[in-house]
Each structure stands twice: as C-alpha cells, then as structure tokens.
Design a protein around this nucleic acid. Structure first.
Length: 802
RNA sequence: GCCGGGAUGGUGGAAUUGGUAGACACGCUGGUCUUAGGAACCAGUGCCCUUGUGGUGUGAAGGUUCGAGUCCUUUUCCCGGCACCA
C-alpha cells in the first residue's frame, strides 16, 4: 500500500478548498428546502477553543452536513458574542483596549474554528461589538421603548460587587453571581427593564408546540411560575393605608389570623407606632445582615416581630395583627401575605412559635378536627360564615367574586417571572441610546443618529466598584445637547446586558451586513431557525429572552412567526474523572494536542463516539485510538482495488443495512451508534482484497458528515466529483437490507436452550418443529408436558413445560 | 422540601420500546509477524463453579408476565433545576 493517511495534509488542503470554492455559502436569496442550522455563538474571552466548544460545534456540523446530503439547502452561520464582562476583564488584566484584545481573540478563535472543518458560511459572520451590528441592537432598544416594553424604574436590584454591575434575576444563582460566584447584594437603583412579564402567558403557552427537550421546557415553565389565585386588600385599622396580598387559597380567608409583611415592604417604614419602632427596626437590621444563603436555608427557625398595628379582614371584619417576618420574601407577589396557620405549614409553624390563633377553615369531611394540625388540601369549608359547608373550590370562586364586588381585590394570576433588568454599569457593551435632559426628561436618540458609538477615551477599571459607569467618566461621550430642546443634557451612562445582543442575532445572520435595517425582510423567509444546538445552561436566560424578543418584534410588525427556534437540542457535558472540567480543578483536556496527534476528523468523531450527544461522557485519553484505527481501516478499505465480480448477497445486505441504520441514527443525532454501525461495516470487509467500487463510494458518503476531510480526500482519490457534499446521502433498498435467514432463540421455561437458523418466511408450525428438533432443546423437553408454545415471529420460541 | 434525568462488565457505552443482555470500542490476556514496537493482524475476555451449550447476572427489595434492563410498588445513591413562591 503506497498511499498513507496523512491527516494533516488532507485537513489543511480541504479547509483551503472549501474556503476558496465558497461551498458553504448557500444562495440566501432562495429559500426552497431551506435548513437554518445554528449553534450558540462563542464568547471570545481569550481562551482557546475548549473541548466544550468542540463538543457543541463538531456534532452540530455533522448534523448540518447530513441535512445537506439529504437534499436541504443548509445555512450554518457563525459569529462572536464579543461584548461583555469577561472580555472587558481580560482586556483590563492585559492592559489593552477591549476592542483590540477582542479582535485578536476573534482572529485566533476563527482559525481554531476552521480546524473543526465545519461548513460555516463566513460570508455572514456577525460580531456583536461591531457598530454595524450594535447599531441595530440600539434600534431594538428604541423599538421596545416605543412599544412601552422598555422602561426605567427604581427598584432594589442585584448588585455584584466584584463585577461592579447590576445583574438580572436570571444571572443570580443561590445568591451568588452566575459569572464570578461572588455574593450578590441588593441596591436601590434606577435602571432600564424590558417588560418580559407582558409575555409571561404566551411564553408559557407556546412551550407546548416546541420541539425542545422536555427538561428545558420544564425549567422555563418553573421560571415563569404561574399561579392562579386572588389578590386581597386589607384595610389597616386607624390608617388610610391598605395592604394587598396574593393568595392561591382565598377560600381560607376566614382562617387568616394575622398578616405578614416582608422586612423590605415599603409600608414597614410608615405605619409602625413609635413604641414598636425600635423592635421592628432592629429586626429589619438583623435580617438585612443575613445573606441570601442564610435566609434560604430551610432548617432555620422562623423569626418575626409584631408591628403594633392591626388589619381588618374584608369579609369577616376580624381585626388581625400585622407582623414583620423574613419568611415572607419581598420579591414575590406583593411582599405581604395573609397567614392561615390551619392551612399552611409555614404559617402553622410561625403561629405556634408566637402563640398566634389558629382557626380551622378547611376540613376533609366537613367535621371539625381541632387546631393541633395543619391541613393544606382542598375540602369542605368550615368556620367560614355563609360559605361553611360548601366545597372549597367553589368557595374560592364565590369569595373572589365577592372581593371584586367589595373593591377589595378579586381573582388574579401571579407569575414568578420578573421584568428583565438590562442596564449594566460597564464599558464593553452596547450603549443605551437614551439622553437624559433636565428639562425634557428621557429623550430617545433619533433613529438616524444611530449607532451611538462607544467612546474610546476610557480609563478602564478606574471607576469600577461603585455604581458609576465607566462611560460617565468620558466627558466627550456623556455630555450632549438635548435633541428636543437643545439644552445641556447627558447620555445614559450604562450599557446593555450582553444577553440583549444574543436575543436577536439569529435574525441578522441571513444577511449579516444589511445596512437598511436590523434584518432584510426578504431574507426572513430563512427564519425561524430550524435546528438550534447549544448548552442547557441557557434555559432560563438566553433561550427565554430570545423567545420574548421574537414575540415583541412580531407585535411590532417586524416578524411573522412566533418562536425563534423550532427545534432545540442540548449537547451534554464532557467530564473528566466524573467531574466537570475546569481550570481551577486542573482537569481540563486541550483539544490541540489530540488534533495534532490524530487529526481533527478523528477528534470530532471520537467526541461523537464517546456517548449519546445529549448526555455527554467522561473523557478518556486512550479511547481515541479506537477511532484512529477505524479511520485507518476506512482509508485502507477505500484503497482496495476495484473488483469486477458481482457482490455477494450478504455483502449487499450488509451495505444496505448499514445505510438504513446510519441514516436513521444520524437523523436522530445518535452519532455514537452511527459510528458503531460503520465500524461493523468495515469489520465485515476486513479481510477482503478487492471490493466493488460502489461499496467504497457509499462508505465515503456515509462517513462524510462525521469526518468531512478524509471523506473529501477519499472521494477525490476514488474519482468522485468536485465534492462529496454535493452528493446525496445513500438510500437503502429495504428488500436488500434484510437477511434471508434469521437466528431464532429457543427457550424452555424462559431459559435460552438453543439457537436455530431458519429462513425468514418459515411458518409457525414448521418453526416449532425445527425448534423441537434442536438437540439441547429436545433434551430439556424430554419427559415433560408442554403446556404452552409461544412464538414471537422472527425472534424466539418459548416452550412452557411442566 | 419540590420538579426533572439517571444507575448495565475493569472502562465508555449498545439493546428493534416486553422477546437471545453486554453491540461497537477502550483496556486486559494469549498468539502471529518483526531487530524492535506505544505498528498491524488473529483468538479470548460479565461473574461463579464441578468447564456443562451448567448456574447466576442490568443500584437494592418485592410484584405483574410464558418471558422484565425495559411495566408496577417500595427503597438507596448520583446529576441537573427550583426553593419559606403564599
């Protein structure tokens, strides 16, 4: 054999050819049989491509290439989520301007992305930090502002001291910053929000129709957190103020024996009588010092103090004490509850702790059971005035109606979802296109003035750590004339959360350099994205934001579809020794070393072979030799001299069966088993010295999506055309794929006692006869009475004997 | 605490959805070729034993069935998400 598999030479050769021939740039003016395959864009923070990138992009490309060979017009773009904190921190650390370090990092990353051998259409590359892109992110902001979906409010927000910026709810996990793991504190700030809550119901409803992992849908469902109940307004005795609470169990209102306000509730400041002030203030001071973690820990005892004030139950007119306790959180509902100790475990515990009254209002059977236990299910109302004796579900409806009539509340739906806080007190992001004028207030920048460019004269890191944004320090940037009155005004000093950049980027790819608008209306026929692949960690962030922005733009008249990503897939995680790879653990695996030794085809195929794509697998250094051997066998097989004898029936059967299983596996992204099937194929022919040419060509087409470089080279060597990716994926012939004879298992009492080889068409009776003839089976049947004979066509025979 | 997902050889993982458990690989053992091999090829490899087409075996214990990795009940552990959500 003269011809050796020199992966290095082959891979550079084909990467160059693909680039030159622009084979990966489809004609986007035509959308017949379009297939928009997208992966989540990478974040050029300064690291090399790590194994996680490869595990996302390699298999995703295999799928895209498979779809192309299935006859689709595939568009697979790539770009860079280049704005953001890590990029800015990287720049500060290396003492360069983020624009420069980002550009350098992107250049490195692009080279590495090329080594994957993916069919990226670099003609339509996007960088979120490019003015030609962020101009339209600003456009998006202004459109949302026009639609009343972007607004400013003062609220206690999450502040990360280490990042020096506020964070959205979604970016705080267990009380710490999702990025840097620093404790997040609360700050009262005036910030921009996007009104995602307007879409809570639709975001929830549409989940049903999406071809997404159930897990992800569940997470979004929980995050949106819909609960159906009622709001109830309590008057405060001797005050004009009222307290509004939300309850899912308004039917238990007669059992409300006290109200609880969260320590952060605004009324706490106003209504406390002087003799109670000291106690309440010191309690609030203590709770403030507790961290989120401490407040969330479950086993801790309930604490609280009485305010000295009473509220009046709108239905029973009972006077009930108002307490302050930190088991009520300010961020949900109204930050206040009516406590019904007989029907809620938490209230029950609190009432017992502080000797508050308990009134039984729900009974499972209509009888009274006393107050020494809590019953939280539905049942029959008791001790509830005119409602007593009725089923609680109907009581709830009646009470909601009555509350409404009395002007004291009524039926209400409450969501956990909060509006999206998008202001960031950092430099490296899209400037918010708003001017604050002392005379005119908030004035949006005119559309034709966009983009509002990021200033370059910035002293980075100088102002970080307090709430003043770096942009505020740039005089040339911050000081402007008001577009309305011409007077002195200031620009908004904040930039937008990077998730705003990624909430719409998929709309721009089909015409990435379009200058007339954010997206070419004509190219929208490429939308929505047919298949989106990326990490599951974005379930309640990016993936929720993108859905919201799509719906908002639809309502603005810019889009005619409801959902951005028709089908979603998450790659799993590659672990090392059972744990996540991380630099701090020192258990990372660098792809480069393996690509150098084995080539990128081998590397990406190995990643796919390790385990199911959505589950990931544990990395092993030596496992890759299996793929290495396989590709060498493929290479050798494709160098075999052509045979001119017609192939055996068995060979044809193996070929067609392989086509059948590999097609179906690739279709379902079961890359690991697809590779196994191809290994079986190659093993079948391991000792052949010549082979009919069509076998080679079919094999090459089948491995092409998985290992594109070697496939192209072998295709060329075997006299194929310009590129194997212009070919169709092989079709199988069902008749040829089946074997004539099959092995039937013969069991006696469910235990395997033999195998028989029979023709497929054999009738049941003949089959039983054959089975009985089997020597070992015969032995087990001897002297026994056959009670039952079970025949599973083409599988097994089971004799039940006594 | 609640909601998801999972547990199969020494290792990664297969299993037509109730029908021969362990495909395909890695590793290991033995062999062939070789000056050599971290190359290639061949054979073997769940466990146990009395080596028989013997017993046993899919986290554990029960159950349904002719037949269970797959269905049901109980239970242990692991991973992900949410968490005093009223």
């Amino acid at each position: 054999m003269t011809n050796q598999y020199l992966f290095n030479k082959i891979e550079t050769k084909w990467q160059k050819r693909w680039k030159e021939s622009k084979i990966h740039s489809p004609d986007l003016t035509k959308s017949m049989k379009k297939y928009y395959a997208l992966t989540m864009w990478p974040y050029p923070s300064g690291d090399k491509l790590h194994i996680g990138h490869w595990y996302n992009y390699g298999p995703a490309d295999t799928y895209a290439r498979f779809m192309k060979m299935k006859g689709y017009n595939v568009f697979q773009p790539q770009g860079f989520d280049a704005f953001g904190l890590p990029a800015e921190n990287y720049a500060i650390h290396h003492k360069v301007h983020p624009a420069l370090s980002t550009e350098k990092n992107i250049a490195t990353m692009k080279k590495q992305l090329d080594s994957i051998g993916a069919m990226y259409d670099w003609q339509n590359e996007i960088r979120s930090c490019a003015p030609e892109y962020y101009k339209w992110t600003q456009w998006l902001f202004l459109k949302l502002y026009d639609m009343g979906l972007a607004y400013r409010k003062t609220a206690p927000v999450n502040w990360c001291p280490s990042c020096g910026t506020v964070l959205a709810n979604e970016q705080v996990k267990d009380g710490v910053c999702d990025r840097c793991k620093e404790q997040v504190t609360k700050k009262e700030l005036t910030q921009w929000f996007f009104k995602i809550t307007d879409y809570a119901e639709e975001l929830l409803q549409n989940l049903d129709e999406l071809d997404w992992p159930e897990k992800t849908k569940h997470m979004q469902q929980n995050w949106i957190g819909k609960s159906v109940g009622a709001n109830i307004i309590f008057k405060i005795k001797e005050y004009d103020d009222t307290i509004e609470v939300f309850s899912t169990r308004s039917d238990t209102i007669f059992g409300a024996t006290y109200l609880v306000l969260a320590p952060e509730h605004p009324l706490v400041k106003n209504i406390i009588p002087s003799e109670y002030k000291e106690t309440v203030d010191s309690y609030i001071a203590i709770t403030k010092e507790k961290t989120e973690i401490e407040r969330m820990s479950l086993d801790r005892e309930k604490t609280g103090v009485f305010t000295g004030v009473y509220a009046i139950n709108p239905l029973s007119k009972a006077e009930i004490p108002i307490w302050v306790a930190d088991y009520v959180v300010s961020s949900y509902g109204t930050g206040a509850i009516m406590a019904v100790p007989s029907g809620d475990e938490r209230d029950f515990e609190f009432a017992n702790e502080f000797g508050l009254p308990i009134i039984e209002v729900v009974s499972p059977d209509g009888e009274l059971h006393g107050n020494d236990q809590c019953y939280s299910d539905y049942g029959i109302s008791v001790n509830s005035g005119e409602y007593s004796g009725k089923p609680t579900e109907s009581v709830q409806k009646l009470i909601n109606a009555q509350l409404d009539e009395l002007g004291c509340g009524g039926a209400k739906i409450q969501y956990k979802l909060h509006d999206w806080l998008i202001s960031r007190q950092r430099y490296w992001g899209t400037p918010i296109p708003i001017i604050h004028c002392p005379a005119c207030g908030i004035v949006p920048v005119e559309m034709n003035e966009l983009p509002v460019l990021l200033p370059e004269d910035i002293k980075l890191s100088s102002t970080y750590g307090d709430e003043l944004s770096p942009l505020a320090a740039s005089d040339s940037y911050i000081n402007v004339k008001c577009p309305k009155c011409g007077g002195d005004a200031k620009r908004d000093a904040d930039t937008m959360d990077t998730f705003v950049c990624s909430s719409w980027y998929y709309l721009r790819y089909p015409n990435a350099h379009y200058s007339e608008g954010p997206f070419d209306p004509d190219r929208l026929k490429w939308l929505p994205v047919d298949c989106y692949i990326g990490g599951a960690e974005h379930a309640t962030m990016h993936l929720l934001y993108a859905r919201f922005i799509t719906k908002a733009l639809r309502d603005g008249g810019y889009l005619n579809f409801d959902e951005p990503f028709t089908k979603l897939y998450h790659q799993g995680t590659i672990t090392r020794d059972g744990t996540k790879m991380s630099k701090s653990r020192g258990n990372t695996v660098s792809p480069d070393e393996f690509i150098e030794n084995y080539g990128s085809d081998t590397f990406r195929a190995y990643l796919m072979f390790m385990g199911p794509f959505d589950e990931g697998a544990d990395w092993s250094d030596q496992g890759i030799t299996g793929i290495d051997r396989f590709l060498k066998k493929v290479w050798r097989f494709c160098q075999l001299p052509d045979s001119h004898n017609s192939s055996s029936k068995k060979d044809l059967q193996v070929l067609h069966h392989t086509i059948q299983t590999v097609s179906s596996d690739l279709e379902h992204m079961k890359f690991n088993t697809a590779i196994s099937r191809l290994m079986e194929f190659i093993n079948h022919f391991s000792n052949y010295e010549e082979i009919e040419s069509s076998f080679k060509l079919n094999l090459i087409k089948m491995i092409a999506p998985l290992t594109p470089h070697i496939a192209e080279e072998l295709w060329e060597i075997n006299g194929g055309g310009e590129s194997v990716f212009l070919e169709a994926f092989p079709e199988f012939d069902a008749a040829l794929a089946e074997e004539d004879t099959i092995a039937i298992a013969v069991q006696v009492n469910g235990k395997l006692r033999g195998n028989i080889e029979v023709v497929k068409t054999l009738e049941k009776d003949a089959l039983l006869l054959e089975a009985r003839k089997h020597e070992n089976v015969h032995h087990y049947l001897a002297g026994k009475e056959i009670i039952k004979e079970i025949v599973v066509p083409q599988r097994l025979v089971n004799f039940v004997v006594k």
